[in-house]
Write a protein that binds this DNA or RNA. Structure first.
Lengths: 135, 135
DNA sequence: CTAGAATTTGGAGCGTGCTCGAAGTCAAGG
DNA sequence: CCTTGACTTCGAGCACGCTCCAAATTCTAG
């Protein structure tokens, strides 16, 4: 299929598809027409989707490239692929925990402001407790 | 306290502290010595920590600036602060969900590679199922 | 008072991940 | 065949969030 359809079906732009290819994120060279235009197959599409999911978890491009290189190299380096993924999982979990932790602050702020808005709507009287709770 | 100590106690670099100030993330102007050097107080420190937590959840600098402006403007805009935080919470939760969802892929890959590594260590025999499971 | 460490400013530089522009080539319908 | 739109490459540009530099000034310990 054309690059446009691939872009449509994977949800990434054609620019990004070409960028990913330049960046070395492909496992096998993308098929081309005799005129030089890219023709993607289902397998290419699946791989691109994997890339987008790894990106969505914050894996940097260069790590995905490394992973693509390992996959391209064929069987025999599962140990390294495993290490790569495990390291990334540690990162992701840490980030997840950090976000969840700090989400509590946001929840708290929302509670506070909800209270203030209700009080304000009721009688425009409140004490801005900036000294104990900045913001 | 000095900028260096503030940096130490908040975990952000002195460069970043100055950058945040330039970017309009402060609620009130930072106190200065007669010579012009910054002197941070506990309240400044608390606000900086809030900023770092918002940053940690992915809130962009310009949103934090907007929030700081609202806080600086004093009581009366709780509605807007609330809207800002609620919008951000929606973002954060969506991102959280996306990460968690895609973490499953990583877990799956790890399971697969663990299996392959064990099999490989045992007898170096496996079928690289690239056609069904790229990567 | 003085030396040396810390801080100041404005602006430049950088890493990441796209995003786009220009100029030319290719593909498919009529 | 011809037109029109999609595609090609290469390199530049951009948004973001820092990070750093240089030269001047200030602070602090001895």
């Amino acid at each position: 299929m054309s690059i446009a359809e691939t872009a449509h079906r994977t949800g990434v732009s054609v620019h990004t598809l070409r960028y990913y290819e330049r960046a070395g994120l492909v496992v096998t060279p993308v098929d081309r027409t005799c005129g030089g235009q890219r023709r993607y197959h289902e397998l290419d599409l699946k791989w691109i989707v994997v890339c987008t999911k790894l990106r969505a978890t914050g894996m940097p491009i260069r790590s995905i490239r490394r992973y693509a290189e390992l996959v391209a190299a064929g069987p025999g380096n599962e140990q390294e692929r495993l290490a790569l993924m495990e390291a990334h999982r540690v990162d992701v979990r840490a980030r997840l925990a950090e976000i969840q932790e700090n989400l509590a602050l946001i929840d708290h702020k929302i509670d506070v402001y909800r209270g203030r808005v209700v009080a304000g709507d009721a009688d425009r009287l409140w004490a801005p407790s900036r000294l104990t709770d900045p913001g």
